[in-house]
Design a protein around this nucleic acid. Structure first.
Lengths: 150, 150
DNA sequence: CTTGATGCAAAGGATTTGCACAAAT
DNA sequence: ATTTGTGCAAATCCTTTGCATCAAG
């Protein structure tokens, strides 16, 4: 799906919830649609401040976008990160942060997703809970940093 | 293992790292040893303030205990929780928070651990990363709240 | 004794809020 | 027009720090 299509779909969603796609919100939404990074509120602010978007508005927009399911929050090392989640088929978010270089990546791997799904089904059946969201954060040393150390 | 035995083992560990088991630290360590709850800094403070332990000391103790592996931090819904980890064989921490009652529980289930282990091995082999820690946070509706809604 | 630990008060950083003004439908 | 959204500045909340004092080994 193209960038503009995605943005107008998000606009529709916002409208259906009684929100407007204002200039600041569009700038922020566009940023999320165009990046695959995990962004902190401050990162977002730095990307949009040139467009005259204030920090409080960044926070307010994050809150709304999170609540209507456009973006998802992941906390790694006590820091909040946000990523686009609306067009992702992923039901699971498996993050890895390297303790050396600090970079965060995601594993998008069918086998992992399948296993997580089975895991979830097993838990739901066994414990009678309904699982709506699963977030996995792994920490360790990434392949690049592993080489450096050698 | 008994409470006192656990505390003296933690004391030894502290000493081996050049730290003392002072009164405030003992009170905090005892709290972690005796509870199975997930505690926030403020929860800890409320439990130990009558022993004349200050909030900064709670934070300083948490930091040390975390660094030497006595306790582990889990962030759920942007809030920091701590739990005893030193005597736990668990390599994985699978938490579930109910979005209705807010309660947090852990799944301590051999089958889940085994599957997570396989999952980890698969990722390490496939992506060449070293995984040292895995934290899983699931959200949904717990079995009790599910009944209420009906 | 000597070093490390503590409490207090104050600082710091991230996030939220009140309010008057601006912009969207 | 009317409602919702915005920027600014200030407030709030959580966490950390400086410093004089205290306690553990």
């Amino acid at each position: 799906m193209g960038t503009e299509k995605k943005i107008s779909e998000i606009e529709e969603l916002l409208k259906s919830k009684g929100y407007k796609l204002t200039h600041p919100r569009e700038v922020i939404v566009r940023l999320f649609v165009q990046t695959s990074e995990h962004l902190k509120p401050e990162d977002i602010y730095n990307e949009v401040r040139h467009e005259d978007v204030s920090l409080p508005t960044v926070y307010r927009s994050i809150e709304i976008l999170k609540n209507i399911g456009v973006i998802k929050e992941v906390v790694i090392n006590s820091e909040r990160y946000y990523e686009l989640s609306i067009f992702s088929q992923k039901k699971f978010h498996i993050h890895f942060q390297c303790s050396i270089c600090g970079k965060i990546k995601e594993y998008n791997d069918k086998r992992i997703f399948k296993d997580m799904l089975l895991q979830r089904d097993y838990i739901e059946e066994t414990y009678n809970d309904v699982i709506e969201d699963v977030t996995v954060v792994m920490k360790g040393v990434c392949s690049s940093c592993k080489k450096e150390v050698k």
